[in-house]
């Protein structure tokens, strides 16, 4: 590795979206770079916050299914 690791590299590393070369380099050098660990810990902390799953109302779903059916009927008539 000849270039410096940026915050963007670390974020991509956290989400497993970086190249294997950069990923291996970061993993091997984490101990020597406490600032990387701070950012990765923050990402981990935020990722662990769970979103509440929400659902559309039954009426909305019904309208959608009806729409999909209407088109079906028209196209086959």
């Amino acid at each position: 590795m000849t270039r410096n690791i940026t915050e963007n590299d670390l974020i991509l590393y956290f989400y497993s979206e970086t190249t294997s070369e950069i990923s291996s380099f970061i993993t091997a050098n984490l101990d020597k770079n406490p600032s990387w660990v701070v950012l990765l810990d923050s990402l981990k902390e935020v990722k662990s916050l769970e979103f509440t799953n929400s659902f559309p109302s039954a009426t909305t779903e019904h309208i959608i299914l009806e729409e999909s059916n209407i088109i079906e009927k028209i196209s086959h008539s």
Binding site: S54, P56, T60, I63, I64, E67, S68
Partner: peptide, 15 residues
């Protein structure tokens, strides 16, 4: 608004 967007989105998806 989320209900409206969801409905309109799926209508567009169907079309």
């Amino acid at each position: 608004l989320a209900e409206d967007i969801f409905q309109e989105t799926f209508v567009k998806i169907i079309h």
